[in-house]
Structure formats: C-alpha cells, structure tokens
C-alpha cells in the first residue's frame, strides 16, 4: 500500500541523505555516533531473519541495504572522518536504552523464542534510537539543514507506517501490536522535532531550537 511504500522510500532517502552529507562535506559534525551504532544494532537484530525467513526479493534487498549502509556509516564515522569535537557532546547514556529495550523484549514478545525476542528488541530499540541525536541537537542548539532533513526522513518512515498498519488492519485483519505500540512511541519522540522542523526548516529559517 501507498503508506508503506512511502515509509520505506523515506527510510531509504534518509540513509542516502546522511551518506551524501558525510561524503560531500567530508565531515560528520553534528551527527551522533551513538545513534548510528544503535541503528546498526536495530538492523542486525531485526533483519538477520533474512537468513531463515524469505519474504520477497524487495524485502531481502532492503534489509541487506540497511544492514550494510548502517555499518558503513559507523565505519566512516569512526575511521574516516573521526570528529572528537562532536564525540565530546555525544554523551547520551545508550546503555540504558539497550538494557531497557532488552528487558522490554523479554516481557513483550509474540513467543519466548530467540528470533522473536530479537525482533521485539529491535522494535523497542528503534523507537528510542534517535534520542542521542536529538539530545545532541539540543546541546548545540542548531543543526545543518541536511542533518535535519535526515532526521525528518527517518522519523517520517515510522510515522507513515502507522496509517499502513491501520490500512492492513482494515484490509487484512492483520494487527501487530508490538510494532504499532513502539511505532507510536517513536513518533511521539519525534513530534517535538517535527514541529520545529515544520516551523523553521520548511519556511527557510535555520534550524535553531527556541
């Protein structure tokens, strides 16, 4: 359906914006390494199911793309364009996010089974993975426009999945409570950012937090 297609496209675009920003400016200023490491974890734990579950060629290719691009971005950030200044303000305690997601995945899953726990873990972790990045924005008070486009596209992906879930609930009777709940949590976390993005970036102002 259109929402899911738009969501996936927006997810894809967010990664391309990020890669392009890093390659062109040859800098990772303002980008949170911790958030990027969390995304590697999210993609690895959710998408390694491609080794034992086949959905479609589209699904497989997208999974491969997200795993490899997220690892590549972390590689660029650590080895190629290391930025100690940015690292110094990247101080969000992600161990709590990882630990909390792990505990929640043990409690909430469709079956107490390795693959299902990993899937649940990835959903919880994804819902909060942007926090170190938003935290960094708050500390610096402003961001490069491209960085805000990246965050917007990434947030739009899960937000667009919400009407997709409603659509699938109506048309197929399919309801994935875990994905829906964590997707809503994720959208709420982004809501403040969306608001500022809409009021400043789209109207041509610099991204500055009030």
């Amino acid at each position: 359906n259109i929402f899911r297609a738009a969501g996936d496209l927006s997810h894809l675009i967010s990664i391309l914006i990020l890669l392009n920003t890093i390659q062109k400016s040859r800098s990772i200023a303002g980008i949170s390494l911790k958030t990027q490491i969390l995304y590697v974890l999210v993609f690895l734990t959710r998408y390694l199911d491609l080794t034992y579950r086949y959905v479609s060629i589209y699904n497989t290719l997208m999974k491969l793309f997200f795993i490899s691009s997220s690892i590549y971005i972390v590689y660029l950030m650590i080895y190629k364009f290391k930025n100690t200044e940015t690292e110094q303000i990247d101080t969000f305690p992600i161990e709590y996010l990882i630990g909390g997601s792990f505990i929640l995945s043990l409690i909430f899953n469709y079956k107490f089974q390795f693959g299902e726990i990993l899937w649940s873990f990835s959903l919880w972790l994804e819902s909060v993975a942007i926090l170190p990045q938003l935290f960094m924005l708050q500390r610096t008070g402003e961001a490069r426009t491209l960085t805000t486009h990246y965050i917007f596209a990434l947030g739009a992906y899960r937000t667009l999945y919400i009407p997709n879930w409603i659509f699938r609930w109506i048309s197929e009777g399919r309801v994935d409570y875990l994905a829906i709940f964590t997707g809503i949590v994720q959208t709420i976390i982004y809501s403040d950012f969306f608001y500022i993005y809409y009021h400043r970036v789209l109207k041509g102002f610099k991204f500055e937090l009030p």
Partner: peptide, 10 residues
C-alpha cells in the same frame, strides 16, 4: 518454526 505474526515489514 512459524511466528505468530508474519514479520513481512521493514
């Protein structure tokens, strides 16, 4: 093993 929900999304 089949999962309860078919994980076919990204």
């Amino acid at each position: 093993t089949e999962s309860i929900i078919n994980h076919d999304e990204l």
